[in-house]
Design a protein around this nucleic acid. Sequence first.
DNA 1: CCTAGTCCACTGGTCGGACCAGTCACAGCT
DNA 2: AGCTGTGACTGGTCCGACCAGTGGACTAGG
Lengths: 260, 260
Amino acid sequence: MNTGTNAGTAKGPRFRPVQPVRAYQRIVEQVEEALARGDLAPGQRLPSERELVAQFEVSRSTVREALRVLESNGVVRSRPGDPNGPEILPFSQSALRKQMVRLARVDELTLSELIGFRMIMDGAAIQVASRLRTPEQLAELEQTLVAMRAAIDVDFEAFSEADLAFHDMIAQISRNSLIQTCNEVVRGVVLSLISDKVAHARNSRALMLESLQHHAEVVDAIRAGDGHAAARIARQNMYDYYAGYVPTPDRDTLRALIED
Amino acid sequence: MNTGTNAGTAKGPRFRPVQPVRAYQRIVEQVEEALARGDLAPGQRLPSERELVAQFEVSRSTVREALRVLESNGVVRSRPGDPNGPEILPFSQSALRKQMVRLARVDELTLSELIGFRMIMDGAAIQVASRLRTPEQLAELEQTLVAMRAAIDVDFEAFSEADLAFHDMIAQISRNSLIQTCNEVVRGVVLSLISDKVAHARNSRALMLESLQHHAEVVDAIRAGDGHAAARIARQNMYDYYAGYVPTPDRDTLRALIED
DNA sequence: CCTAGTCCACTGGTCGGACCAGTCACAGCT
DNA sequence: AGCTGTGACTGGTCCGACCAGTGGACTAGG
């Protein structure tokens, strides 16, 4: 501890150590912010290195160091000679996602853990979304609800897909890549579940209606900006939703599944 | 698909596209290999940039780009003016950890979510550890058990720290940076809990004994290589352990905490 | 008209040199 | 012995240059 240094003065506010921010870090931050804001989307191109030199008003070496960081984070990819400039990669190629997929694929995360994972992340995501959502996003979310209601009359598979779209939107609104990654991975697992075990839940119209009701409550809470309430409802909903995938579709079974 | 191109020839081995390997990538690989081999250990220092220029026989720009990649992966950290050169950091995961810490710090993950997070990760970690552990690591794990037993006679704080050491080791054995990161973040939260709410659990010798017993069972399962059993016991243990931090230290309260 | 080939502006990768502010170890002083 | 000033060296940034490679425009051929 460095309390010894401050013990002599014993007055004034406690300051924390500062470290200089490097120019290339600033560039990385700006690019990632633009990505989070939506000003930059996967598939789009970054200006060429020499153009970035002009925009950021730094040397090319600095720009390149920033690009190396972005590249190692899976944000962009540069190809020599490409006149279009560095490519913004789809989110699915990020280093974080690869790790999670690796975990999920080799069964290091079991089904129950993935469900718990989504439950936790969903709660966090919805909490964040309550704070960050724009009126337009709220409207989109409400449209998803309409789609879910319509899907009930089709089949459970359609309903599940609408539910996935709902959570995709929540993750998107949260603007947090960790949340987005979790959502992505769990999405893959859920999709495989739909094809495998859907038989257990085909005739669960009541379940779908209940789930829809929960989703509507979540949207209400998001509209009101009450993050905690939204997260609580979302978790409750998770129970009910995934209960549809286990042989005995009741809440206690899922609870046991999670706890085992 | 590009089967159409090959359909004409319909012979010979299928080749995959190649892309040039950059010099800075080669450097990154060499450093990471040295780290994996054990020739380079955390705490040690890399030669200075100018020295690396001589060893790799590339320009300083190239060395620096490689260092930026390593830095963004959390492998090394450079400090201006440090005559010792870049420092090898404990384990590799910078961006990932920052995201999780950011999540945890701004309360986007609440306490209950973090507890759930650890519970899940712990299960996964222990499962992986059961497969990967070496005899030496198993011996170390058993030593940690001895330390925990001794800590019971000191106080709850000491016991908690020994418990943290146990989970650190599990995470280390898992060799999965995602697990390690989760462990790191939760560790920070647990440490803050120890100072804040430890009063509620000071006189819980029985709780500590029970926890110790669980840990011993986990080690038994790891020794036997039964990953699923180990994970199950670990989760059970999580309930009991964190129950010590909530005002009413019983399992049902925690269960409610997690579910709410 | 369309196609196939050529060409060239421009890209990213690498190089080597330079300057600066900051750090640390050590020599010299008190 | 303890303190202090200094200097060698560090990483951060900049500049200008060269290269191999790319892809779009342009042209010659069908």
